[in-house]
Nucleic acid binder design. Structure first.
Lengths: 170, 170
DNA sequence: CATGGCATGTAATTTGTTACATGATTTC
DNA sequence: GAAATCATGTAACAAATTACATGCCATG
């Protein structure tokens, strides 16, 4: 994933520190991407060296001081260039699917329990998503959450169909 | 991704060379995972050192000789252990979604064209999927393809809804 | 007084891709 | 004669995670 552009993109909303960015990603993009400090801070340093961002150190009372990063014109141009490129077609990576594929010779019971477990998990995720969705502050946050919700719902449907077919085959 | 277990899992079907595994992944699991030689060969060597697989060199007329790997009991036990563990809940990583999220301040036209492009791509993928699906040889191949197809169809639905909502907001 | 939030960062490791190197044979 | 298929492998690089190190403040 191009964390570089994720950072630049988030900085268009407002100047932020690495810590702020991490929080933002965690609360609004948790279902689709993540960013650890081990990636975030070095990337910010690199971006600074490239001139894509500026930094201002803000002392705080009773807290460690913040390094607030702001997008430069150059950074904005870079970001816009990336946004206008077509997105790469990414694979639908699902560990569960690989396991399902490989588990066929372990017998019917194993496959059945995989599917059942997966449905429980997906349904639980769907519950969490619905409450999160209500807290969405911006349109884009809602877009992403709706997308993820749509995928989870489609998965539940597929799992249900799968179970039904499995019953027929028995 | 746990390529280790992907390899072990594929070897349950029949003994294979690295080249065979690569082909198998390419033809039957292309939409959900990939494996390059740079990963495959070193992983096979590691698996051999761990005793999960055995190797037999098979000379061939007019071709380079093959190293055919066969699962050992130890490897099979290892694989079964993994298959019985619950799958990790993976993120729905979509570069396109991140771009969509970050593109909101580029204006309506850009968002609209992103959505349109994405729908075209997804529909094209769906076409390819449907022909591939007919060539599926085993039940598990069909499962995976059906899953991917279900996700693509759900995406097209979401994109269509998105466009409609966008028109209303205008 | 422990836990969690605020805030920065580095180092080791894992994981994987891309590109390269080699070389014979078959197909267009 | 060029390109694709068969077949092995390594080395350089890229991307990212995990774990560690530091330290203060507020809350329970």
């Amino acid at each position: 994933m191009a964390y570089k552009y994720l950072i630049l993109g988030l900085l268009t909303e407002r100047p932020m520190s690495g810590y702020d960015i991490k929080k933002q990603v965690k609360t609004t993009l948790n279902a689709v991407t993540s960013a650890s400090y081990g990636t975030l801070y070095p990337t910010l340093h690199k971006l600074l060296a490239e001139g894509c961002v500026e930094v201002q150190e803000v002392p705080q009372q009773g807290r460690p001081s913040k390094k607030v990063y702001r997008l430069t014109d150059s950074g904005r141009a870079d970001l816009n260039g990336w946004l206008h490129e077509p997105a790469t077609a990414d694979q639908i990576r699902r560990e569960f699917l690989i396991k399902l594929y490989l588990a066929h010779n372990l017998g019917e019971q194993v496959v059945r329990s995989m599917i059942a477990t997966r449905r429980q998990e997906t349904e639980r995720m769907l519950q969490g998503l619905k409450t999160d969705r209500q807290q969405a502050r911006t349109a884009q946050q809602a877009w992403v959450m709706d997308y993820v919700q749509a995928m989870c719902e489609a998965e539940v449907t597929w799992l249900t169909t799968f179970e039904a077919q499995f019953d027929v085959m028995r």
